[in-house]
Amino acid sequence: MLVVMERIIWGIGVYLAVGVVFAAAFVAAGVGRVSPAARGSGWGFRLLIIPGTAIFWPLLAARWARPVIEPEESPPPVEPADEWVDPEKETAA
């Protein structure tokens, strides 16, 4: 049992080591593609997400490999009243 646990710990270590290597590239180049809000962000933020990137690197690698996601448009400004859903008219969703 303890032998198995020790192997698991080494496995975690190898996984995180690969993650750290990935994280170096990710925070330098990939993070802006995965998260629009991270574009143009400073090095403090990028360094801060390295540990988490080392943990979730397969997920981030998969998203990095996907086509670029354009940033969401700003939510529409307050809409005029005639576009509001009228509770009196229709209740079916």
Binding site: A37, F45, L48, P51, G52, A54, I55, F56, L60
Partner: peptide, 13 residues
């Protein structure tokens, strides 16, 4: 938990 404490992770995950 500490590594994912930044709101970037809230957004990403």
């Amino acid at each position: 938990m500490a590594a994912t404490s930044h709101d970037f992770w809230l957004d990403t995950l």
